[in-house]
Amino acid sequence: MPRKAWFALVAVLVTVSLLALMLGATSVAPGDVWRALVGGGTDDATRAIVRTVRLPRVALALLVGGALGMSGSVMQATLRNGLAEPYLLGVSGGAAVGAVLAVAMGVSAPALIALAAFGGALLAVAGVLALTRAAGTRGDTRLLLMAGVVVGAFANAVIMVMMATATPDITRNALWWMMGSVAGAGWRDVVLLTATLGGVGLLLGHRARELDVLALGGDTAESLGVDVVRAARRFFILASLLAATTVAVAGLVGFVGLMVPHLARALTSGRARATLLASALGGASLVVAADLAARTVRAPSELPLGAVTALLGVPFFLWRLREGR
């Protein structure tokens, strides 16, 4: 990937992040943002807005986008399918079942709902892996894809049944959660996601060449010395872990994991390590921009983040598609 493209990706991320720190109910000048961040001389109110209100939110949006972009690019290479994404494959469904169940049981503490969502996501991933193991075909990643879709459909059915029988209050709460938001961002979420993204990102970077080989298909990957079944399972688990953590802290933010890897591949040479990094940077920019739009376009009310990512992302994707021809 040309250096110019990397520079552009980083520049876009820095720009949207700075804009997100500046804009909102009260606008803050770029200089004041800088002074508030480094602890220079601004008034307490400005410092509080930038540091306490906006910074954790921007940081969380950035991390959620980065994790989802990376997760999507791993899923697509592992399952050898451009339609694969973390949410399609049971993770989101499992997380939603966990969260809705928690809400329906009267849990209101966000941390507990997040924990329930995370547990649900992991259960769904375990279900997918158990299904593929039961079917027992060696090294067929299509099976993993099928199992993911099946578990996702099952989870959706469970959610519909729960929603249909729940009180309107619970339904509304659950719906909001399913539309994704970083409004409740706290530093604890930021630290949690930083640790996950850092750890999983390093592991993925370490195994990126294996991911390249896996994308060539079973026979060839095996002939190059990769244990296809184990490698695919490992990548699937790592990608799901990334997605499940984002779901726990921000609900369902759709579209990012699906579309961003396509854009990243078009920018890079298509080799896995570059695509992973570009997907993380691109995803981060998209979610920061989407959150900025979600809280400013119809202020003081907020739009659902998961919908805005798609509303912003689809036109951009179409434009890239035309340019790429």
């Binding site: 697509q76 060539l216 298909g217 026979d219 298509g270």
Partner: peptide, 16 residues
């Protein structure tokens, strides 16, 4: 081994 069939999931440059 050059297997009977092979299709990369995503295109790469031939050198890569």
């Amino acid at each position: 081994v050059v297997a009977q069939r092979e299709e990369p999931a995503f295109p790469l440059a031939v050198r890569d």
